[in-house]
């Protein structure tokens, strides 16, 4: 991130028509958000977002999104490594399938999860016999969020791994480091910024997850009704509450994404000391 920003300020020959198109793109995102701001009932804003149901939903959203992010890192890092460094038949196919939740409508993801982990589902029946119930529990929410958020981590990290290249890993290996040592001491420190931004994206995606949760997990206050589901429900009767909660969700998302992309993230400093040159620039 830091490197790219420096390069942009050194060269600023963006054609005006590109700027115009960029402005259209930015407007497309900002205009609806600005319009929503205009509809906020400001005198009632604080009471609306601090109501018991709102706070419960926000707390549940933050907890489940954090849990999903952990799961994304635990399973996404190995997946990204296998996809970026591995060489095996079916690799491209595996990548397509892992990235599928990016393009699937979340409701389709919810239906698929239902057939896997639901009571009548592939695994669900055995789980039910073992006394584990997933449907209508917070576990279902975390599963749904992980399902939709995992590709964000895999894509970010695989890109970072590819740009970093495997030169340093090869050097470390010739110096006698075992694969796990190479992974821990060379590979991961090199791609830490990529991993961090991937984790942030996963968190943000989990926070906004709606369709799969609604289809798969249900909606019960404090158990499965996350902030997006609460907004969806409030909008049936109380438009002001729905708008206020939407703004709250936007604020949380902006804070999370903004904080992690800016500031002296420890991730950046670690990777700077770890890399002798600038592998990103070398690769680019």
């Amino acid at each position: 991130m830091r490197i790219r920003r420096r390069r942009d300020s050194a060269y600023n020959g963006i054609p005006r028509w590109v700027m115009a198109m960029a402005a259209v793109g930015a407007l497309l995102v900002l205009l609806p958000l600005a319009a929503m701001l205009g509809r906020v009932n400001w005198p009632q804003f604080i009471p609306l977002i601090t109501s018991e149901s709102s706070l419960t939903a926000l707390g549940l959203s933050l907890r489940t999104a954090a849990a999903s992010t952990v799961l994304c890192v635990v399973f996404g890092v190995p997946l990204a490594l296998v996809l970026a460094r591995g060489d095996f038949p079916g690799q491209r196919l595996l990548r397509s399938f892992v990235l599928l939740p990016l393009v699937l409508p979340p409701v389709v993801g919810g239906i698929a999860l239902l057939y896997a982990f639901g009571r009548q589902g592939l695994l669900g029946q055995s789980l039910e016999i073992a006394g584990i119930q997933i449907a209508f529990t917070t576990t279902a929410v975390v599963l749904a969020q992980t399902f939709v958020a995992l590709p964000f981590l895999v894509v970010s990290l695989e890109g970072a791994l590819r740009s970093a290249g495997s030169r340093y890993e090869a050097v470390a290996a010739t110096l006698g480091a075992r694969p796990t040592t190479v992974l821990r001491r060379v590979t991961l420190p090199l791609v830490l910024p990529g991993l961090a931004s991937g984790a942030v994206l996963s968190f943000a995606r989990s926070l906004g997850e709606f369709g799969a949760t609604l289809t798969f997990a249900g909606s019960l206050q404090g158990v499965t009704r996350t902030l997006p589901l609460e907004i969806y429900l409030q909008r049936e009767t109380d438009a002001d509450a729905a708008v206020a909660l939407s703004l709250l969700l936007v604020i949380v998302a902006v804070v999370v994404v903004g904080l992690s992309y800016r500031g002296p993230a420890p991730a950046g400093s670690v990777s700077r000391t770890a890399r002798p040159g600038a592998p990103w620039r070398v690769a680019a």
Binding site: Q120, F136, S219, Y232
Partner: peptide, 20 residues
């Protein structure tokens, strides 16, 4: 209830799929 859905269609879906 284990879930309070936003629409009757969602209730029906949960029953039809055997979840509820």
């Amino acid at each position: 209830p284990v879930s309070e859905e936003s629409s009757v269609t969602d209730v029906l879906g949960k029953v039809a799929s055997g979840e509820a």
